[in-house]
Design a protein around this nucleic acid. Structure first.
Lengths: 102, 102
DNA sequence: TCTTTGCTTGCGATTTTAGCCAAATATGCA
DNA sequence: TGCATATTTGGCTAAAATCGCAAGCAAAGA
């Protein structure tokens, strides 16, 4: 049984992505791993709030983290997750790739 | 500008999918359009609740609806949306398709 | 050991979402 | 026109999510 095979696991992934800050975090992490303090520079929010967003993403299986020295580095659990964005972008960018022709 | 190009539009899509009932509705509609009364048979919830879930999906641009006679028929706004599920399923079913090798 | 830095967690206040019931609306049929 | 059916909307309450502040904790360095 895969990580995202159950309905609830999928719901958790979508719920994790269903917040502007978390979605931007995921987009940032698509470029490569980042530590919390670096992420914090991109977001005008309290570090505790950022930390909670990261834990939502982690619990959903969207990201992993690793502590190295004083810092905690977050990365996408699977880079393939960005394909989800590709799906949406494809609908915008290239109607021909969309089977329904819209 | 496509329908899902902005961050907020993407968030709305994920938010719409971030509920077990709505996710199952989308899965059901992937097979083809259905009217509210038929959908209702699949879910042990109040019709008013179902109607609200459908309006969340509609406002996010995930589904469209059309009234024909006494019934309202819902369908996926774009069948391609099911590619989002394919993305997740691919991670479970076929590790080779996943660039990160997990 | 003591202090600083980086991050997480407990908590309370506020906002958002979900659910049901009841009322409103719209269509079709008698 | 009047009634039944199908769906949506208003109003309410309960539950969940969000946020910042303050406190806790672990690793690093003085």
């Amino acid at each position: 049984m895969g990580k995202f095979s159950s309905l609830d696991a999928k719901v958790a992934v979508f719920k994790a992505l269903a917040h502007p800050t978390r979605l931007r975090i995921v987009q940032d992490l698509a470029e490569g791993e980042l530590c919390v303090c670096v992420l914090l520079e991109s977001f005008p929010i309290d570090m505790s709030t950022l930390s909670r967003h990261l834990s939502v993403l982690k619990n959903a299986g969207v990201v992993d983290c690793e502590k190295r020295g004083k810092n905690v580095y977050y990365r996408l659990a699977c880079p393939c997750l960005t394909r989800i964005f590709d799906c949406l972008d494809a609908l915008d960018a290239d109607a021909k790739r969309c089977a329904c022709g819209r």
